[in-house]
């Protein structure tokens, strides 16, 4: 029963990690940028939700109506003013730029909120649904449903819209996409906006399930990178599968054996997978080499 409980928790928590990783993988797919600021942006999203909830006394999920557009705008701002102007050695320079953005965000948050831990509260956050002997924490259930819904929307946008076609074309071959008239700058700007908008949502969920401060980003970024590497850079579906896989493995090993071995076991599986499929589970071989 404990193993089944661990599997359920792994799937539920994996859902919201997938949501956070989706933004990271999408941005890499389109722009060849590893968004090293994703951890800091998730924490920024958590703080924004925390502030909105506290000042307007609204539900954390409703706070997303304010924080998501704000963070999406921030993503577009970062693209227009920090990424787009980079003309040479773009991959390395953008990596450094995003690292600088992360440091800047952490510093500002430290000043604005000091370094004490805070947590987002709502009346139902400690509630859970009991089915038989199994326990379903309500906040994880809600965030999982939200993640599935948003990832579904992302899928529809990517595969059923004109923008999605432009986005996939930019991912497959940016030069060819430009030649056929796709405004790849606009696609990149919107993609970074979406990626960082998703961070706002992930941040809210993170902030309701963990006490956090400005430095909490360090614990998030490594996990997200691992999820994206296993799933395959650029693959949203891969992020979902690998996030759930990672969390289930870790949780089951934690209850059956030891939490210390949870991460180790997952990393061993990651190495084995990468030996067989260096591009990750769902990554396309050689796409970025074009």
């Amino acid at each position: 029963m404990l193993v089944l409980q661990a599997i359920i928790e792994g799937v539920l928590v994996g859902g919201f990690y997938a949501l956070m990783a989706a933004g990271l993988t999408l941005v890499f797919g389109v722009m060849d940028i590893v968004n090293f600021a994703i951890g800091a942006l998730i924490v920024l999203g958590a703080y924004l939700s925390y502030s909105v909830c506290n000042h307007l006394h609204i539900d954390p999920f409703l706070s997303l109506l304010i924080t998501t557009p704000l963070m999406t705008g921030l993503g577009m701002f970062i693209y227009v003013f920090l990424i787009k102007p980079i003309k040479t050695n773009r991959v390395v320079m953008s990596l450094l730029t995003m690292f600088a953005v992360a440091t800047l965000i952490e510093g500002i948050l430290d000043i604005c909120y000091n370094s004490g831990f805070v947590q987002i509260h709502a009346s139902y956050i400690n509630n859970s649904l009991k089915i038989g002997k199994l326990n379903f924490p309500l906040i994880y259930v809600l965030s999982f449903l939200l993640s599935v819904f948003l990832l579904g929307c992302l899928f529809l946008i990517t595969y059923r819209t004109k923008f999605g076609r432009s986005l996939r074309a930019s991912m497959q071959n940016p030069v060819a996409a430009r030649l056929v008239g796709i405004d790849t700058d606009r696609v990149s700007m919107i993609t970074l906006g979406i990626g960082i908008g998703l961070a706002a949502i992930g941040g809210m969920v993170f902030g309701t399930t963990n006490a956090f401060n400005a430095s909490s980003s360090y614990d998030i970024i490594s996990r997200l990178l691992v999820i994206v590497i296993l799933g395959g850079f650029g693959s949203v579906g891969g992020a979902l599968v690998s996030a759930i896989f990672m969390l289930v493995i870790q949780d089951v090993v934690a209850v059956v054996w030891s939490p210390v071995w949870g991460s180790t076991t997952f990393y061993m599986i990651l190495i084995l997978v990468l030996l067989v499929r260096p591009q990750g589970l769902f990554g396309k071989k050689g796409v970025r080499a074009q």
Binding site: A6, I220, Q250, A254, V255
Partner: peptide
């Protein structure tokens, strides 16, 4: 960052 399996155990 995910304490649910430890707490469950």
């Amino acid at each position: 960052t995910d304490f649910s399996p430890i707490a469950s155990a």
